[in-house]
Simulated assay, not measured.
Amino acid sequence: MSQCCGGGGEKPYDLSKRINVEDKRLLNCKAVDVNQLWPLKYEWAWEHYLNGCANNWMPSEVPMQKDISLWHSPDGLTDAERLVIMRNLGFFSTGESLVGNNIVLAIFEHITNPEARQYLLRQAYEEAVHTHAFHYIVESLGLDGREVFNMYHEVDSIRGKDEFVMSLTEAIMRPGFTTETVEGIQEFIKNLVGFYVIMEGIFFYSGFVMILSFHRQNRMTGIGEQFQYILRDETVHLNFGIDLINTIKEENPEAWTPELRREIVEMIRKAVEFEIAYAKACLPEGVLGLNADLFREYVGYIADRRLRRIGLPAQYRSRNPFPWMSETMDLTKEKNFFETRVTEYQSAGSLIWD
């Protein structure tokens, strides 16, 4: 019997159109309908989606009164401390937008698996929330929004990072680009490495350390709370991106050539130099117990972690000068934020900090 009937006189289901789960590949899917979610092929993609949903939050739910008072107090922050905050707002305000645009304009079209697309939709929403957070901070502190959101044009160390990552989108955005060739898959992998491993997995993490150093001292706590939320979101983004890259490698081994591996190692080494230059620009004289030498060590440490997770050799053998960052990730959200409505992280304890 090849057909089964629905109730109420509906047309019978055509079982020949049912999707074979093995055909639901990430790239160049052979399934008839890319929109059919069930049955799942990649449980990890759905798990990341559920983790993202459990982490839901909105910037306007975080109180900013203490930050406003400290920012406008004549004795509240030094010029060096203000520079750290302003440079990070300038980088993140555009960086988050670039990641969101890359998902919508470059990645989504070529991912042909529905549960992976489901996660990408969730991530794009979260990138919009993060950009909203920087607007909320700027507005709350009474900053010049044009100065903050235009900083990627005017500060060399920020412009260098953004241009480096954006260059990895150019090939994918060309008319006629396809992942049906080995060369196309390789370009796609480089884009994924650029945005998930480099932008979200390396470039963002120095900024997290800088801002959360204020938060550890119970200063600029509103910004700090929002960066904690963003850090938790980014951890899920990173884990999804690593799984995405590794699965594409497994399904397309002909694309993971020695030449591509060498090229990706060189990309990450170049990214580390961009990030060290950024740390120097944010901390020209050191502040909060932080300095550029510590960040050179830290960036090398996290770069090695990223390299190993996509099957590439470590390059720096650095130690982690900020072990408290893992403690920050391990904390569950139990306080009520002064009776505000911030949603607690339901599954933060299950996330893998990286």
Rank of each mutant, 00 (worst) to 15 (best):
K249H: 08
E163N: 13
A128E: 03
T169G: 02
S167G: 14
I310H: 09
Y136T: 11
E344C: 00
D75P: 00
V265L: 11
E234I: 02
N246W: 01
S213K: 14
G222F: 07
R317Y: 10
E47C: 04
N246S: 09
A116I: 05
G8F: 04
R25E: 07
Y13N: 05
T332V: 12
G8K: 08
T178C: 00
L244H: 03
C5F: 15
M329D: 04
P175S: 13
R262Q: 11
Q65D: 15
G142E: 07
L105H: 08
P39V: 10
P59W: 12
D162L: 15
G207Q: 13
S347P: 00
T221F: 02
K161R: 15
I107W: 02
L192C: 15
F203D: 10
N28C: 10
R308D: 07
K41S: 09
E180M: 05
I85T: 13
K66R: 13
Y316D: 12
V104S: 12
L37V: 11
W57F: 03
D304Q: 06
E115D: 09
G6I: 07
P59H: 13
S213T: 14
H135G: 03
G52N: 15
W38K: 05
F227D: 06
V138I: 14
N102V: 09
G160W: 05
G194R: 12
S60Y: 13
R341V: 05
N101T: 04
A106N: 13
A171I: 01
Y125F: 15
C5E: 15
D330K: 13
L98T: 06
P253W: 12
